[in-house]
């Protein structure tokens, strides 16, 4: 058996965060320390038009290309400006409003807050991102 093999398991704080997000009716994402999307909950799946099980993990670049977000000018937002990136980079919550595009092509106005998950002095092990639809179309999703 020996000592531990290559790591298969996420840090406990990410596991607990995922368990929490699973229980929420607020759309929410979970990203790891590289800002890679590792989970989103059923409410987010309803908003995006696809459950996480159909999508799987995504790099931030792929996420942006698929769903946005887009600024008020309709252009994709720069990765560095996203609340997720800022939360992980700066180790503090970040908030922004933008538009995303669902799998069906519908655009939604979203307010988003990202919270870094910090369990050690080594920095964030990820972040939780909660979404609040601010347009009527998304609210009724």
């Amino acid at each position: 058996m020996g000592t531990m093999a290559a790591r298969a398991q996420k840090p406990l704080e990410l596991i607990l965060a995922r368990n929490l997000l699973t229980s929420l009716s607020t759309p929410a994402f979970l990203v790891d320390e590289k800002a890679e999307l590792v989970f989103y909950n059923e409410a987010a799946g309803a908003l995006l038009g696809r459950p996480f099980e159909d999508v799987g993990r995504m790099s931030p670049q792929k996420w942006i290309a698929t769903y946005g977000p887009f600024g008020e000018d309709g252009e994709p937002m720069a990765l560095d400006d996203l609340p997720t990136t800022r939360a992980i980079r700066d180790g503090r919550p970040a908030h922004a409003s933008f538009r995303i595009r669902s799998a069906g092509g519908t655009e939604h106005e979203i307010a988003s807050s990202a919270f870094p998950i910090v369990a050690s002095e080594e920095g964030s092990s990820g972040a939780m991102i909660l979404f609040w639809p601010t347009d009527e179309k998304a609210k009724s999703t």
Binding site: M4, A8, Q9, K10, L12, I15, L16, N19, L20, S23
Partner: peptide
């Protein structure tokens, strides 16, 4: 706690490694 232990991927199981 908060998960389906029988079916969730190992990476999401506390204590798996």
């Amino acid at each position: 706690l908060g998960t389906e232990l029988a079916s969730v991927d190992p990476e999401w199981i506390s204590g798996f490694d």
